[in-house]
Amino acid sequence: MEFRLRKGSGVPAYQQIVQQTQQALRVGTLRLGDKLPTAREVVAATAVNPNTVLRAYQELQRAGLVESRQGLGTFVVRTLGRAEGAATEELREELDAWVARAREHGLEREDVLALTASAVERLFQPSHSGNGEPA
């Protein structure tokens, strides 16, 4: 996987790495047993301080999502995916189609993100469902 870190976004880089890893675990881009990129690879690609990456990985390890194996790398030991298989696949395809339509209608990236975020916000309120992961 690749991290896309935005500097000056107000969110510290290490948090962005944690969030993006969680997201990848959720949507299935990262699966059980997958290897996270090495600190060197992340650093070279994103130009953040090596300590930042290590700190993010430690955070993920503390959360029990990944495990660092001496000399081998950091591996996924637990995923966050709820629904596996066909259902997820179908949902993703629908979402892809929806995003494509949104773009055709002239929506910017930020608009799309805002729309989806507000939908998530509305529909995942604790009263609606109790299974929202803590952000």
């Binding site: 000056g8 650093v43 130009a47 090596p50």
Partner: peptide, 27 residues
């Protein structure tokens, strides 16, 4: 990225001057 990778890889030390503080953000 390359310079920081050297830090991660070889434990190199970097001392860099700048007068633009945003250059240093997360670096």
């Amino acid at each position: 990225g390359l310079l920081l990778a050297d830090v991660a890889d070889h434990g190199a030390t970097v001392m860099l001057s700048t007068h633009i503080l945003t250059d240093l953000d997360e670096v």
